[in-house]
Computed example of a mutant assay.
Amino acid sequence: MKPDWKNFLEHAGAEFEDLAVASFGNAERELRVTTTGDVLCDLSHFGLISAYGEDATDFLQGQFSNDVAQVDAGHSQLNSYCTPKGRMLANFRLFKPGDTYYLRLPQALIEPTLKRLRMFVMRSRVTLENADDALTRIGWSGPNAATELSTALGGADIPETPDETLSHDELSVLRVPGIHPRFEIYGQLEAVQRLWDRLNVHGAPVGAACWGLLDVLSGIPTIQPQTSEAFVPQMANMELIGGVSFQKGCYPGQEIVARTQYLGNLKRRMYRIHVDLNEVVPGQEIVDAAKGESGMVGRLVEGFRHPDGGVEGLAVLQIQSVEDAADLRLGTAKGPRVSVSPPPYPLTADTD
């Protein structure tokens, strides 16, 4: 994070924890307004990897699960980077405001992902860099978010559907899925500072966990270090949310991802869950209490506090266990009960 941006946020009341904004001084109020009002969030807990050069498109196309050729100034996409066994090392949003591609993913996965990608550059004319300081990034969400953002940008058009992207001077505005209109905005420091000040009049600044809750409520998973290599993309519903192409060429793990899709043998899916706790950790096991300690049936992707109490999360679970309404518990057979509900989209989709 640029020192000038951190100083700006601190002046606005930001309190930091592990280099992420924990809150702006009233975490409980911020949590309550997240699901009902207009909220503004620093996104520096996500890092950026840049990729540019004559062969950048072809190189990324050979590495990722989605069709990179579809990303341009008007479209971003969800994507994933897999092992040869089809397990996701990371997932991310990919966008391209000019001649450079950017991967937006958790800070903790920036260096491992960058190191692995560089192993395969060989003679490709592509440059890969940690671009954490290249673009300042914020999120904006709420019932009035679309109208207020347009006003803050001088009446400019804004993206109308998820994955649509528009540029305004020094800013790139990405529409992302949400329970309300929701946007990620990237740009040069001064331009983002000006926009923050305009939006701050109409919304409440919130901490990073609030943005994570909005991802969970939208059914959008984020792979963390604890879950890296844990899931095939379909287990985390990536093909249902536009994160996998079945028509593109080869990439690491492509055969397994395709076989899983066309043989119809997927035994695990991602669901929304609720647990009566104040905090959970990505990667925690979920077990069937009737089967004891050997009855692991799933794993937590992420979870965040909900204003109505407890933690709302996403978890990859055995489909059969969900259909059987098994007594699911977090951690151990005697752990807190896990309530399951479907994500906010159908659990079936046509291949593209």
Results as ranks from 00 to 15, higher is better:
P252G: 00
Y262D: 11
S245C: 01
L166V: 14
A51I: 07
G212K: 03
V126H: 00
C210M: 14
D327P: 02
T83M: 02
V232G: 03
R182W: 10
S167T: 12
I110R: 06
C210F: 05
D4G: 07
T100H: 04
A230H: 12
R118N: 15
K334N: 15
D99C: 02
G187C: 06
A145H: 11
P346Q: 09
G303A: 12
L114D: 11
S294H: 14
L135Y: 07
E10T: 10
G47P: 12
G47F: 09
V121Q: 12
A349K: 15
A290S: 14
C82I: 06
G331I: 13
S76A: 11
I286Q: 04
A14P: 02
A289W: 06
P225F: 14
A22D: 10
D157S: 15
V201F: 11
E17I: 05
T35W: 09
Q77T: 08
D38K: 05
S65N: 11
P233K: 12
D157T: 14
S23C: 04
L60V: 08
L31E: 04
A73M: 04
H75W: 11
A326I: 05
L171Q: 05
T151L: 09
G292Y: 01
G154S: 01
K267H: 04
R269H: 09
S76F: 02
G313Y: 03
E111G: 01
Q224S: 12
T127F: 15
P177E: 08
G203V: 10
I319K: 04
L89Q: 12
A73L: 03
L153W: 14
Q193A: 11
L300Q: 09
T136C: 06
K85E: 05
L117W: 10
G249K: 12
E111S: 14
P233E: 14
K6Y: 08
Y271P: 06
K334R: 13
F24E: 10
G47W: 03
L277Y: 07
A325V: 05
T147R: 04
T165Q: 15
W140L: 08
I110L: 15
E312Y: 07
G74Q: 13
E28P: 04
G295A: 08
Q188F: 11
T34G: 08
G335Y: 15
R137L: 15
R125W: 13
G37Q: 02
T136Q: 13
A12V: 04
A56L: 07
I241Y: 02
R87Q: 03
L277G: 07
M296Y: 10
S228F: 06
E184S: 13
Y102A: 01
G47K: 00
L153H: 09
K248V: 10
V121Y: 12
F120W: 14
G142A: 12
L94I: 08
F92G: 03
L109N: 10
G13E: 00
I241T: 04
N91D: 04
R194H: 07
V316G: 06
S44I: 06
S44C: 15
D324Q: 12
V280E: 06
A258G: 12
H168K: 04
